[in-house]
């Protein structure tokens, strides 16, 4: 346990500078806008008084460092700022939006793993026909643009077969069944491409493990082929698969930005896109910060999971 504890602490320590770098990047968004960001935000009709007020509110007339520090201070107290259009506090807005994005990406990730990993094992242990079929799935899954796949799924399931609603969202608390029904198409859209990556990774990782000498010893012990594949090969392939899952979390969060817009899901990604279109920079900052934080936290969790799966990783550096 102390092994995992020290590994966790070391990994947490690395996360601090990453979070700081990310916060600087997000902080700079509004400051890097060419010209006068306040005038850009408010548009041509803004009076000089409006501009001065917003400039003061955003603290843009102070030094960069003092701006950053007070912004970071607010952030650490859970204050993400104010929406310049609706004047609503952004922390509340994000709190409403975050569950949608988490549900979409979480379900997509689980679906992709549930499709990709077993198919990968099948591909690694199956014959040439299985290999060809799964390879075809990989090439298609990687090549189909996800949002176009989403459009085609809508055409199929709500245009032709009238089985599922084409878009829209219902809160889970209000109607769980309807919520999940409306999540099917967006989740499937995001999951197919990801599943292709998991298939490819699982296939090569499991294939490599099955060539290891310890598999011969397992056979000599009379262990069943099923157990060799699922108990040993998959377990050994675990770190490689989890590494790719960690990388794909970023891809999935990026994909969610488009898919939320496509299916009219009120998530953080759609908020950012609307924010950009309306030049509502505080909203963009809060949204980017939220998605980036999910990304960093999930990457951290994946690394800890790898350390737990592969004792050699978490041992490195302690002894």
């Amino acid at each position: 346990m102390s092994r995992m504890l020290s590994f966790t602490l070391r990994r947490l320590l690395i996360t601090i500078p990453v979070m700081l770098a990310m916060s600087v990047l997000v902080f700079m968004i509004i400051r890097l806008v060419p010209g006068d960001p306040v005038r850009t935000m408010l548009g041509f009709r803004a009076t000089d008084a409006n501009v001065a007020e917003l400039r003061d509110q955003l603290g843009l007339d102070r030094s960069l460092l003092s701006q950053y520090l007070s912004w970071l201070g607010n952030l650490l107290q859970g204050d993400l700022g104010t929406d310049i259009i609706s004047k609503a506090p952004l922390t509340e807005l994000l709190a409403q939006r975050l569950p949608v994005t988490l549900e979409l990406t979480g379900l997509s990730m689980l679906t992709a793993i549930a499709i990709g990993v077993p198919l990968g094992v099948w591909s690694a242990t199956g014959g040439p026909l299985v290999r060809r079929l799964t390879e075809g799935f990989v090439i298609l899954g990687i090549s189909i643009p996800d949002f176009w796949l989403g459009i085609m799924l809508v055409l199929l399931f709500s245009g032709i077969f009238l089985l599922l609603p084409p878009s829209g969202w219902v809160p889970f608390a209000e109607d769980p069944v309807e919520n999940l029904r409306r999540m099917i198409l967006p989740v499937l859209t995001l999951a197919v491409g990801e599943a292709a990556y998991f298939l490819r990774t699982t296939r090569s990782a499991v294939g490599t493990v099955l060539e290891q000498p310890f598999v011969t010893f397992l056979r000599a012990k009379g262990v069943s082929p099923r157990r060799i594949v699922y108990g040993h090969a998959l377990r050994n392939a675990g770190p490689s698969i989890v590494t790719v899952i960690g990388i794909q979390v970023g891809v999935l969060l990026g994909g969610a930005i488009i898919i939320e817009t496509l299916f009219a899901l009120p998530g953080v990604g759609r908020l950012v896109v609307t924010g950009i279109t309306q030049r509502n920079y505080p909203v963009v900052q809060a949204g980017v910060l939220t998605i980036a934080t999910i990304f960093i936290v999930v990457s951290l969790l994946m690394d800890l999971l790898i350390g737990w799966l592969d004792p050699r990783v978490s041992d490195a550096g302690t002894s």
Binding site: L25, I29, V288, A292, F295
Partner: peptide, 22 residues
């Protein structure tokens, strides 16, 4: 280069567009 990898690719692209305009 690690700095650039702090954000997921699509999010970084969108951040760029947020700053410089579409």
């Amino acid at each position: 280069l690690d700095m650039i990898l702090v954000l997921p690719a699509m999010l970084l692209a969108i951040t760029f567009i947020a700053i410089l305009g579409p």
